[in-house]
Simulated assay, not measured.
Amino acid sequence: MAISLSKGQKVDLTKGNPGLSTVVVGLGWDTNKYDGGSDFDLDASAFLQDSGGKVRRETDFIFYNNLKDPSGAVQHLGDNRTGEGEGDDEQIRIELTKVPADVMKIAFTVTIHEAEQRAQNFGQVSNSFIRVFNEENNEELIRYDLGEDFSIETAVVVGELYRYQGEWKFSAIGSGFQGGLAALCKNFGLEV
């Protein structure tokens, strides 16, 4: 049974699941009634970080235009441009044993594509969640429902996988940013 987290909670991922090697992080959302004339296009991304909380190089930023990191450990499984349908809207697959040893954290984020031009923000998004499941048997291990805490933000750090004493853990972050993808990239040490 999945562990349901609240903002700020942390939980062991690999310690309680011996032999866990590949997980999929699913992110989902719905849009509220919106009459702005443009579709909502939310994008999931992952930032592979060193011990200082920064990406080592541009290829450690995994998103719809860079689907895989150089090691092949982290792979974005495709861009959903409408958010239509039930369940996960976008997924990122992680082979835990292949993640380079100097990658200490993997942050999972969601941004609104062209948010400023379309006058969109996370106050117009509901039912947002992140979940982690075992790829081998599809068992959901962790789930974090974000709630409706956002208003003017255009980017959210949803959660992160991180190494601690040789094990992988998960932290529910739920931290909003203004400035969209550019603000997130700057936060993680990338020039836009």
Rank of each mutant, 00 (worst) to 15 (best):
S4E: 15
S6A: 10
G8F: 06
K10V: 14
K10I: 13
V11F: 13
V11E: 10
D12Y: 12
L13R: 03
T14M: 11
T14R: 09
K15M: 12
G16K: 08
P18T: 03
S21K: 15
V25D: 02
V25W: 05
G28C: 04
G28P: 02
D30L: 11
T31Y: 08
Y34M: 08
S38P: 00
S38D: 12
D39C: 05
S45C: 05
L48S: 02
Q49C: 15
Q49W: 01
S51R: 11
G52P: 04
G53I: 00
R56D: 14
R57M: 14
E58T: 11
T59C: 07
F63I: 05
F63A: 09
Y64R: 00
K68H: 05
D69I: 07
G72T: 03
G72Y: 05
V74E: 01
H76M: 11
L77I: 03
L77C: 09
D79T: 02
N80H: 04
N80A: 06
T82N: 09
E84C: 03
E84Y: 02
G85P: 07
G87I: 03
Q91H: 04
Q91S: 12
Q91D: 09
R93Y: 01
R93E: 10
R93D: 00
I94V: 15
I94R: 00
L96N: 04
L96G: 08
T97A: 14
V99F: 10
A101P: 13
A101H: 11
V103S: 02
K105T: 11
K105P: 02
A107P: 01
F108E: 01
T109S: 10
V110M: 15
E114L: 14
E116M: 12
R118E: 13
A119S: 14
Q120P: 09
G123D: 11
V125W: 09
V125F: 12
N127T: 10
F133V: 05
N134K: 08
E135N: 08
E135F: 02
E135Y: 03
E135D: 14
E135H: 02
E136T: 08
E140Y: 04
L141D: 09
L141N: 05
I142V: 15
I142R: 01
R143M: 12
D145I: 01
D145C: 06
